Computed example of a mutant assay.
Amino acid sequence: MSLPTLPVDKALTALDHRIEAAVGCSVDQLWQHRERGLLDEPSSRLADAHRGLVRAETSVTFYRFMLRRLASGRFPVDQALFARIDRTVGRLQKAAAARDEHQQLVLAALGPVETMRAQKTIPEGAELRAPDFAALLAIAQGAKLHHHLLTGRLSVVTASGVRVTPSTLERLEEAGLVTRDESHPVQAGQPVTVTDVGRTTLAGVRRPGIAAAPSSPQPGAWPSTGRARS
């Protein structure tokens, strides 16, 4: 029985959320940036390793599906069924072992990217990049942090329709520019509002250290999640 071609971009891995937090975009966007040659070397290695992990996870999912199908009651309970179950279990074990190996490769590639992200996190009074300024402007129009029950992913949806990544939200929070209302459950949506410092930044009265938007993207920087409205 051969393994069919499955849509690997539909598979989720246990590391997706951590990867998205490190790179500042979705894993789908990470792959797109890789294909377009927009990534630096550490991020390219991470994208390649993640692609391999997704394929391995797809194989695990496939053989789990086959086991459920064999145990569904659609086949006679005989020695032929037992043999098919044994073969499928063996293949599932190999797929799981391969998945674990790919997961270690992803973790090895993820470490340097997380280190770079930690170094770029905006401390209070430090430089605010153009994409973060655009995200701050979108949040000022109204925003909520949501937790997707099926995928487990966090996302910030603004009133203008711009989606802000959790990593961008975290940077803005650490810089004291936005705050979340944690009295609301994240499953129902936590309101995200701009602080007095954030409003001052948007008004053009910049704090010391808040730099104007660069005229060209810096190496390794991610594209803006949305355009600020005029």
Rank of each mutant, 00 (worst) to 15 (best):
P4S: 01
P4D: 04
L6M: 02
K10G: 15
L12D: 10
L12Y: 14
T13G: 09
H17L: 06
H17S: 13
E20W: 13
A21L: 03
A22S: 12
V23R: 14
G24I: 00
G24W: 00
G24N: 01
S26D: 15
D28N: 07
Q29V: 12
L30R: 00
W31Q: 12
R34Q: 13
R34I: 15
E35H: 04
L39G: 01
L39M: 08
L39W: 01
E41D: 13
S43W: 10
R45P: 13
A47V: 01
A47Y: 05
D48C: 09
G52I: 09
V54S: 08
E57G: 15
T58G: 12
T58I: 15
T58V: 11
V60P: 02
R64H: 08
R69D: 13
S72W: 12
A80C: 02
A80G: 03
A83E: 13
D86E: 04
R87I: 07
R87E: 08
R87G: 11
G90V: 07
R91T: 04
A95E: 05
A96I: 05
L107V: 09
A108Q: 15
A109L: 10
L110F: 01
V113S: 01
E114Y: 06
T115N: 03
T121F: 09
E124Y: 12
G125S: 06
G125P: 13
R129V: 10
A130F: 15
P131N: 05
D132R: 01
L136I: 00
L137K: 09
Q141F: 08
A143P: 11
L145W: 12
H146K: 02
H148V: 15
L149W: 08
L150F: 09
L150V: 15
R153Y: 00
L154Y: 07
V157W: 10
G161L: 00
G161S: 00
G161E: 00
P166L: 14
L172D: 04
V178Y: 00
V178D: 03
R180E: 01
E182K: 05
E182C: 11
E182P: 06
H184E: 04
Q187N: 03
Q190G: 02
P191N: 02
R199D: 06
R199E: 11
T201Q: 06
L202W: 08
V205S: 11
V205L: 10
V205D: 11
R207E: 08
P208Q: 14
I210P: 03
I210Q: 10
I210G: 13
A211G: 10
A212K: 08
A213V: 07
A213R: 05
P214F: 05
P214S: 05
S215M: 12
Q218Y: 06
A221S: 09
T225C: 00
R227D: 12
